[in-house]
Nucleic acid binder design. Structure first.
Length: 401
RNA sequence: GGGUAGGUGGCGGAGCGGCCAAUCGCACCAGACUGUAAAUCUGGCGACCGGAAGGUCUUCGGAGGUUCAAAUCCUCCCCUGCCCA
């Protein structure tokens, strides 16, 4: 197998589409013969500066490109964030200050460092060039598209059919994203399948600007922990790449069984045959394996193993975790009532919520459910408390300073 | 600009003067069960006081008004869909 085919095989793995593959092959060929790395673009909306496993799918692909010697351009869409991606109309986005942007950029770099080789990664902000466009330029961009084309985009047509509003500025989003590709002279752009239209807009505009068109690579959209909707912070079904080992492990254990295969494919390097074999075994063990693989990828094998044993300790054997956070309580009026103490420390959202929890048997003190009424903390005793499924803490008496 | 239908809790969507803190579904939380924080079943799901019974406060686009009483009626305003221009 020659080098081109070898690279192609690596890139093809796990992707949905390469549009068009022939052009991609040509680009690879040229890159190899001229010893000139391809410019691989990946863009992200900085409104929620938290990368999660859903983002990791395309980013892992970027890593493949880096390993093959290509150049990765990680674009933070600070300017386009002002418009908002049309997928889901929310209220006007707050305008980020330069400081906030700078800060966000840094957090991206930190998070991306878990997945990418930062030495080989270029971080860019699209405000750099989009801010300079004048109205004439914008009109030029719009002339490359017709309303019908834009409206054809799935989420637009759906919203239009359902009688949901579409604001005019949203029409501009794909154009701006496409112009990013012009400004960056990208050879390849990677995104999830839902981004296909936006990614293709880059091709249209590059052509309009007399450039060679980028190749579009789409990767699957990862379902979130609910197993239904795509992983997203807004749906609250996401697993951040910065999650602690324990948290990450537990969240993965909570995915529905039928999602395991997908997660193995998109989020681990376990080869195809390995996945088959694991999935043919006991589902609980398969899921533990999955959780271990992913957790270890981000936290190292030792932490992965620890997370696994803690998980079994807490949820299978129903023991307390080996380490419990300590909180102090004082002897003052209502503070001695357990619910008030918890509420005061923001460990439960409200007193009403705490009472509900208590009524449902969701509060345990020293291993026993608190059944009737308020539990009174008696100084100077210490208590091991479990609130709900996940919160363990030790309340220690402390005299008021 | 004209016509018309709407704006209700995280979302979808009932209610259309008192019994509404607001049916129901999804989501979420807890308990039971289990192979897991899966699935399933049960309960809960504005805040505050109370052990409880119960009470108080703030909510149905916004501002006023009518009424003993409004998410429900009236006035003005804001926002959105659709049709026509």
């Amino acid at each position: 197998m020659n080098e081109i085919e070898k690279q192609l095989a690596v890139i093809r793995q796990g992707v949905t589409e390469i549009i068009p593959e022939t052009e991609f092959r040509e680009k690879l060929k040229r890159s190899l013969s001229k010893n000139q790395p391809l410019r691989i673009k990946y863009g992200i909306d900085p409104t929620a500066p938290e990368l999660h496993l859903g983002h990791s799918v395309p980013i892992r692909k970027l890593r493949d490109f880096q390993n093959l010697g290509h150049r990765v351009i990680f674009l933070v869409g600070d300017f386009t964030a002002l418009i908002g991606d049309p997928t889901g109309r929310i209220e006007t986005r707050p305008i980020l200050s330069p400081e906030e942007i700078k800060q966000n950029l840094q957090t991206y770099q930190e998070q991306a460092s878990k997945l990418l080789d930062l030495e080989k990664t270029e971080f860019v902000l699209n405000s750099t060039w989009l801010e300079k466009l004048n109205f004439k330029d914008v009109i030029k961009l719009t002339s490359s598209f017709t309303v019908a084309q834009i409206l054809e985009r799935d989420d637009f047509s759906q919203r239009y059919r359902n009688g949901n509003p579409i604001s005019l500025q949203e029409f501009l989003y794909p154009l701006l994203q496409g112009y990013d590709s012009v400004a960056l002279k990208s050879d390849v752009e990677i995104g999830a399948t839902e981004q296909k239209f936006n990614l293709l807009a880059g091709r249209t505009l590059q052509e309009a600007f007399g450039m060679e068109k980028q190749v579009v690579i789409t990767v699957p959209i990862l379902e979130g922990t609910d197993g239904i909707r795509k992983m997203s912070k807004t749906y609250g079904n996401y697993i951040p790449v910065t999650a602690t080992a324990g948290d990450m492990f537990g969240k993965i254990m909570s995915i529905p069984d039928n999602l395991m295969e997908r997660y193995f494919r998109c989020l681990t390097s376990v080869p195809e045959e390995g996945i088959k074999e694991i999935l043919s075994g006991h589902p609980k063990e398969a899921k533990e394996q999955l959780a271990f693989e992913i957790t270890s990828f981000y936290h190292g094998k030792d932490s992965g193993r620890l997370a696994q044993s803690e998980f079994n300790r807490i949820f299978s054997q129903k023991n307390d975790p080996t380490e419990v956070t300590e909180w102090s309580y004082h002897a003052a009026d209502k503070l001695q009532q357990i619910i008030h103490t918890l509420a005061l420390n923001s460990l439960i959202p409200s007193i009403s919520e705490g009472k509900r929890l208590l009524k449902n048997g969701g509060i345990k003190v020293n291993g026993a459910k608190v059944i009737d009424g308020e539990f009174i903390l008696e100084p100077p005793n210490s208590y091991t408390i479990k609130v709900g499924k996940l919160l363990f803490l030790k309340l220690v008496y402390k005299q008021k300073p």
